[in-house]
Write a protein that binds this DNA or RNA. Sequence first.
DNA 1: TAGATTGTTAATCGATTAACAATC
DNA 2: TAGATTGTTAATCGATTAACAATC
Lengths: 213, 213
Amino acid sequence: MRIIFQIKIPKPTIARLCLLYQFLEQAERNGVKRLSSSQIGEQLGFHPHNIRKDIGYLGEIGNTGAGYNVIELKNHISQRFGLDRKRNACVVGLGRLGRAILNLDQFVLKSYKLVAGFDSNINKLETMKTKIDLFPSSEIIEIVRRRHIELAVITVPARAACKVADQLVEGGVKGIVNFCNIVIKPKKADVFIRNISVTGEFHYLSALITLNR
Amino acid sequence: MRIIFQIKIPKPTIARLCLLYQFLEQAERNGVKRLSSSQIGEQLGFHPHNIRKDIGYLGEIGNTGAGYNVIELKNHISQRFGLDRKRNACVVGLGRLGRAILNLDQFVLKSYKLVAGFDSNINKLETMKTKIDLFPSSEIIEIVRRRHIELAVITVPARAACKVADQLVEGGVKGIVNFCNIVIKPKKADVFIRNISVTGEFHYLSALITLNR
DNA sequence: TAGATTGTTAATCGATTAACAATC
DNA sequence: TAGATTGTTAATCGATTAACAATC
C-alpha cells in the first residue's frame, strides 16, 4: 500500500495526463484493451519513462509485464482529476465563434453541460435560435451563481474581455477559456484561465518554425 | 557586443515571450511607452527575474534604470521569432467553427493571411459566401503547395483529422492548430502541432480546480 | 519458466529564483 | 548624484531521463 494523497502532481504531468486521457478515449473507441508505456509514448511523442512516472503520480498500478488496462487507466485519471464530475459551463459573447461553441453537441462536450449563453446585444438574444437559455451580459453574476456554473468560455471583443472575466469570477466561475486576442490574468488564486487565440497559436507556431525548435 | 545567435531559447521562454508580445501590443494601443520587468511580471503573473532572463535570450538590451521601451521590445520579439513575416494560412473543415475562423478579420489575424478554405462537401463550397477561395479537400496538397501555405487550422470531424494533417504536411505546411477532439502527433521533426479543443481545455481546467494547483 | 514491462530510485539535465554589480 | 532597474552569474529547485530490481 502506498501513501498517495498528499503527493503534489507537477503541472507538466497534469497536462500530459489530460492528453493521455483523450488518447485513451480514442483507444477505447477503437477497441484497444491494453497499452504499454512504450506504445503510449510512441503515439503521444513522450519517452516511456515519462509516461510511467506520470502514471505513477496517480498512485495506481499497471500490470507489471503486461502494460495498462485502457479503461482502468482512463478511470483513474478521470477520478483523480475530477473529470467524472458533471460541470456546468457557459459562453459569453455570441458572435460566430461563440455560437459555434454554443452549438457543440453533447458527445463532443463529454461531461460538461452548457447551461447559458450571454451577449450584450439584446436584439441578438431575441433572434437567435438555440436550445440553450440566453441572457443579457448584465445578468452574468446572477445567472452564474444561480446555475452553479464552474466553467466559462469568453468570445467577446477584446476590450470587453477583462470585465466579463471579473463578473464570471464574482459569480463563482473557477475556470475560464479566453478566446480573445488579449491576455487575462487570474485575480484569485483558485481561478484558472487559459488564454487561447488563433493568432496567439499562430505566433507560437511561427516562433517554433523560425527557431526550428 | 554579445554573441547571441547560437544560444538555444527554452520552450517555456518562447511561450512566455509570445504572451509578452501580445501584452506589448495591448500596451502600445493604450499608449504605454515604457515598462519595467516588475510591471510586466505583475500583469502577466511571472516573477520579474523570469521576465528579465527571458528577454535576455533576445540578446538585446533594455535601459538599465529605466525599463524597456515597449515598441523596441515588441520589435525585437517579432524579429527574432519571425512574427514580422507575412504567412499564408488555411482552414480545413467549414462547419460552424471553421467558418467562424475563416471570417476573422485581418485586424485580428495580424500578419497571417487566410488564402484558402477546404471542405469535403462540395455542395457546401458552392453555397457558402466568403471572400476567401474555397476548394474541395481532395485538392489540399496541390493548393497548399501552390499558394505557399505555412500554417493551417483543422476543424474537421475527429475521424478525418489525421488524414487531413498528413495531406497538409505533404503540401508543405509547417504549423497546425488542430481544434478537433483528438491528439495528432507530428510525423516530421520540422512540423509543429497544437492540439486544442474546448473539451480538452475544460479537462485541464477541471484538473487544476480539483487538485487546486 | 522466460520475456516483457512496470514502479521506483538515482543521475542528469534544464529552468526558475535569488543576488548583486553595472549603469542609466 | 541618488534611485531605479537592468543583465548576468550563481544557487536552488523541479522535471526528465536512465537504470534496474520486482513481478506478472
